[in-house]
Design a protein around this nucleic acid. Structure first.
Lengths: 240, 240
DNA sequence: CGTTTGTTTGAGCCTTCTCAAAGGCTGTGG
DNA sequence: CCACAGCCTTTGAGAAGGCTCAAACAAACG
């Protein structure tokens, strides 16, 4: 937590909020925060909750305070592709209203700080710094999407799963650089499969392979311990 | 072409330029255009030219005046994934300097209108409308990337190739809504394969399948005629 | 506990890849 | 204008990685 000179003017809820430091609210000064704070509210959603249905235009947007949010796309016949995972303190919601057709769900239990979508336009119009933050997040998401295109299009099953674990180990522990060696998988095998363009069975087989090779340990199917980070990196990059 | 009241104040080169209407320059007024125009210059590059090497930080950014630009990512062992195709009048170049690791090449012969990267920052700082255009382009690119993740992760070879042709038929003929029924492929089979996460052989086989099914005709390997658009759409969506 | 849901493991099959060779363009030089 | 070289594309045959279907197992929940 950071000490601000104007901390006293900042809404109580915002004081300890990560979104104010690393998220989009960091671009706002105390009066702006106060204004935004009046229209915002916090909510919790259980794992699996649909936050925005595919094709729907949501009325609210949110900072993710904790948990993991899953964005996915659907094909008419039911095939699914997860197109992004968002972690705290990412911002959830799209400016300019030209929403594309994604399904937004809580992958884990999630806490959000939400406010009306029009406030987003208002804030962007009123603060160039705010728009810049939004813009930068979009560019970061674009980079992530492109990295994942590489993974989806050109890596084999082993490389995909290893890449996924590495990605998680970098994201799950917020605000800390580098890799965590121990973390919970934010979703089940079938969501992982939908993220990697594989089937649950193949994901499961690759995880057991990594386990038997001594690269990771798995406890109660949801918790991963990275035993050999270099091995994992090597597999992810196609070294084996 | 549009008639502007202040056309006379607009740099000569910009008057007939698509980028001024549908591209980012549309956000600039005559004085701003004039200022930008003084630092900009036009260049042509032959198909295959490397515009920005992977990992390099370019000094210029550009509007694409004509042609197709290919962005791709490389794996250490040489595998390649094309992560985006850009068409006129898209903008090429990244604000904020946190460039990600992509290789930029001319897919076809290309004409660019380039200016220094710092001008980009200057323009964004000076014009909120300009930053908004950049921001919107990033969001559009993000949508495209996500659509393609769906294609890469969950579609089979036939669906991928059909989706690719449909995408081209929408993009190749600029400024026009809907689908073109006749267009040139902007790249060879192996680049198409690298875009679709397939091999050249598989791309070739799927193209001949579509040809034998009467959905398309191919002339001299580079020109496609869409004979049955509905068929193509159906294949792309997994209808068959 | 028993039920339900999610995960792991196995066996066989199918799509796509790999490797190989033939066929078509394009451009150059005779 | 034709012949040839080089490159790209097409086609074929066989191998393999990942999928499908099916069953055993483990974990979560009432």
């Amino acid at each position: 937590m950071r000490m601000d000179i104007h901390n006293a003017d900042v809404p109580v809820l915002c004081r300890a909020c990560e979104a104010r430091h690393r998220g989009i609210c960091g671009a706002l000064d105390a009066p702006e925060l106060l204004r935004l704070g009046r229209t915002s509210s916090r909510h919790e959603y259980g794992a699996g909750t649909t936050l925005v249905a595919a094709g729907e235009r949501p009325e609210h947007c949110s900072n993710i305070l904790s948990g993991v949010v899953k964005l996915s796309k659907l094909l008419p016949d039911g095939r699914q592709q997860v197109v992004e995972l968002q972690f705290a303190p990412d911002f959830l919601g799209r400016p300019f209203g030209d929403e594309s057709d994604v399904l937004v769900e809580a992958a884990t239990d999630v806490r959000l700080c939400s406010f009306p979508l029009d406030m987003l336009q208002t804030m962007m119009a009123g603060s160039a710094a705010f728009e810049t933050r939004m813009h930068r997040q979009a560019l970061r998401q674009l980079d992530d999407a492109r990295d994942w295109m590489m993974t989806l299009g050109r890596k084999n099953a082993a490389e995909k799963v290893a890449s996924f674990l590495l990605m998680l180990s970098r994201h799950v522990r917020p605000q800390q650089e580098g890799y965590s060696t121990s973390f919970a998988l934010p979703m089940g095998r079938s969501d992982i499969a939908d993220f990697l363009g594989l089937t649950t069975e193949t994901v499961s087989r690759q995880l057991t392979r990594l386990r038997k090779d001594g690269a990771i340990a798995i406890e109660r199917t949801r918790h991963v311990e990275v035993l050999d980070l270099d091995e994992l990196k090597e597999v992810a990059a196609g070294g084996t």
